[in-house]
């Protein structure tokens, strides 16, 4: 087991390195740098002004060197301006060149400086992640129990009316992407045209003070899309368990139906959904980006859109590192959890 985890962590680091290099490469293509220069300076910059701006920022070095600087294995670039002042990636506003360290990359714990938010990337990402964490917590709290309940109820008696109804509901939710269900929810529950006005159409106020009224719609929108999938997996594994020999034995012994479901079937039926729930995290990330845009909730997904739209290289890299880590860690947990829950599988 220890070796297995070690191996997986190794692969994880390799994957993260490859992916960040890919992001680095794409964000550092010249047209993107030109856009960065123009959004930082002004939109009417001439070609010479753009290239001198990029030269000063050290953007025109070869990509592997820049990547090394970002990682913190190479000393970072410094540019001496005509007036003798020195600028560079490590030199934050208000500091002098002597005070600043030579190496500044993620190995030194420095994530860079966001050009959009005019703030340190680490701070931006962590505050936004906390907001998204709040959203995700409620999503999980709503999605997982209701999905499991749905799946178990449907899977108890395969082919019954309950099963048909619940399965159709589950299929419908998986067929409704967040931007469709969100729009429908806002239309029905929040707009003045229908007049119900039960909830608020934006979640901006939920960032400080989340109430049922301003936070329920975004949470529901994200949960619904993932819910159907988990419910279908639970249903499939539940129907499989319900046809097993030991369930028949229990029925013949005269154990009551609720007892069979609760004591015999559930434990075995919940192994597969566990993996699925863990693997849902990466998908939820997509949902988060859409819902945060739709409901104007300024969390991690919103930062991703801002960073990508303005080619904020450092921020974009940090965002991709975080999301890659989320994906890979959940994969690891789901693998380990699967082994732990299912004693029939042993990893050497």
């Amino acid at each position: 087991m220890g070796l297995f985890i070690l191996k997986r962590v190794g692969v994880m680091i390799l994957t993260a390195l490859c992916l960040t290099f890919l992001v680095f490469f794409l964000t550092n293509l010249y047209p993107n740098l030109e856009k960065l220069a123009k959004t930082q300076g002004n939109f009417r910059m001439s070609d010479e002004q753009v290239s001198s701006f990029l030269e000063k920022g050290g953007y025109l070095q070869p990509i592997p060197i820049k990547y090394g600087e970002w990682l913190g294995v190479l000393p970072s670039y410094r540019h001496t301006n005509e007036d003798g002042s020195v600028q560079g990636r490590c030199i934050l506003p208000g500091k002098t060149a002597e005070e600043s360290p030579k190496f500044c990359g993620i190995l030194q714990g420095f994530w860079g400086y966001s050009t959009v938010f005019k703030d340190e990337v680490a701070g931006v990402v962590s505050t936004r992640l906390a907001l998204t964490g709040k959203l995700m917590f409620w999503v999980m709290l709503l999605m997982v129990p209701s999905a499991l309940l749905l799946g178990i109820l449907a899977g108890m008696k395969e082919g019954s009316k309950t099963d048909r109804t619940l399965s159709t509901f589950a299929i419908t939710t998986t067929a409704t992407p967040e931007y469709v269900s969100g729009v429908i929810f806002i239309a029905v529950f929040a707009s003045s045209a229908v007049g119900l006005k039960w909830f608020k159409g934006t979640a901006t106020s939920a960032m400080e003070h989340a109430t049922f009224e301003n936070f329920f719609l975004p949470v529901l929108t994200i949960s619904l899309y993932g819910m159907g999938y988990i419910a279908r997996m639970t249903r499939a594994s539940m129907t499989e368990v319900m046809t097993a020999q030991y369930i028949r034995t229990a029925r013949l012994k005269g154990v009551s139906f609720p007892n069979i479901v609760m004591k015999h079937a559930l434990r075995n039926a919940l192994i597969a959904p566990f993996t699925v729930i863990m693997l849902q995290f990466p998908w939820l990330l997509n949902g988060v980006v859409i819902v945060e845009t739709l409901f104007n909730y300024k969390g991690f997904g919103w930062v991703l859109v801002q960073a990508a739209g303005n080619n904020d290289i450092q921020l974009l890299l940090a965002v991709s590192v975080v999301s890659v880590i989320v994906v890979l860690v959940t994969q690891l947990i789901s693998d380990i959890g699967y082994v732990y829950l299912n004693p029939r599988i042993r990893i050497a």
Binding site: L19, E34, V289
Partner: peptide, 16 residues
């Protein structure tokens, strides 16, 4: 492992 939306934002822009 790439979030789909990030990939789209990186690939589907006029600059790229």
């Amino acid at each position: 492992a790439f979030p789909v939306i990030l990939l789209f934002y990186l690939l589907v822009t006029p600059e790229i």
